[in-house]
Simulated assay, not measured.
Amino acid sequence: MQRFKRRKYFNPDTTMERNTLMAQCYPKLKDYCREKHGLEFQVVDMRWGVRDEATDDHMTTELCMREIENCQRLSMGPNFVVFLGQKYGYRPIPTYVLSSELEMLRTELESQGMDVGLLDKWYKKDSNAVPPTSILQPISSILKNFNNKRIPKLQQEDQAIWWDTMVKMQKLFRKGAQSLYNSGKFDKDTMHNYFMSVTEREVINGILNVKNTKNHCLAYIRYINNINLQNLRKASLFLDIVNRSLDNEASKLLANLRDERLPDKIETTNLQRYTVEWIGREGLDPETHSEYLQHFITHFYRNIVKLVDRAMRKEDSSAQGQIITEILQHLHACNNSVRVNPTKTIIEQKLSYSDELPGSNPK
């Protein structure tokens, strides 16, 4: 069976849409791909979570990038679907930094009177790498109880320490990178690397750096009107919130990605926009937004099917595809020629008959 793997990226603010696709759309797509083309339909959703070890080793982003590459390599049709809302998303600190670059950041920060002790503590230089690279150390190598599930209280304490530490290093990196960019020592891409979210990094690898988006990529953009900022707990699921206020920096970075670079790259036929209203305490709910959800999953299904069919037409017209088709036709003919009824073949019936002849071995 040929492999068809479709990767999709969804931010945490799209739980309602993900659940609806899981319940109502994926089973139909799986049946369609198998029955129409003999393909295996697979969904890879990075927001289903990663193992604790990946978090400990800061490998989450790298795993996401690797999965995109796998899907691009294995998929015959669509291999990347992005759904962007109004949340730019998680912005981790880098796992690997060129040692020369880290030294520039340290020097710049120290010149401004900043304490760089955290960077020295958490990043260790690998002199064997070419060029030399500084690596963010596993969390549990310093905070021993970060993964200690046997003592939840100690684990919670170390996890709280880590997230506080990460935010502090995040601020150091951004301040240093911005200063070096302003002085002309960093170019824009180098500076932006310290501000970028996992969302943007995935869209870059899944769409912006892809040559043929027409046959492989889809994008969905959803705007929510009148989000209730009085309910920060709910609003923070759909917006970037910092210090109990909207994170304007993240909003600008998202707008540049969602409203400029993405539409400029992907075909208009592969991009769909939705605008919905914030309703009640939950904001979004399957019952109050049923019409939107129905249109979304219908559009999603039709577009995935369109890209799968297009890929198969191209495959069937190739020399290799024609050979495979002929082989499958012969197998199908052989299967029909030996089939007597749904449960027994001619051979099975002959064996059964011979067992009943005089002198045959008893069953």
Rank of each mutant, 00 (worst) to 15 (best):
Y88Q: 11
L136Q: 09
E110H: 02
I227R: 05
G321H: 06
M22P: 11
Q329P: 04
T95R: 14
D187P: 12
L84P: 10
D247V: 09
L21F: 14
G359S: 07
I266W: 00
K144T: 14
D164E: 13
D259N: 08
V43D: 14
E326F: 02
F186W: 06
K149D: 00
D189I: 09
T55M: 09
W163L: 15
N341K: 03
S318G: 00
N226T: 03
L257T: 05
K30W: 07
T15P: 03
I279M: 06
T343L: 11
P78M: 10
I221K: 15
Y88N: 05
G283E: 02
P12I: 07
R34P: 08
L102W: 01
V44S: 12
I161F: 04
T345A: 15
L119V: 09
A319C: 01
M65W: 03
T268G: 00
P286I: 08
Y88W: 05
A129S: 14
D355H: 12
L229T: 05
R201T: 11
K149R: 04
P152G: 07
A235Q: 08
R244A: 11
A311K: 00
T343Q: 14
I279F: 03
A23K: 08
C64A: 15
R261M: 06
Q42P: 06
H332W: 06
Y88G: 04
K185R: 04
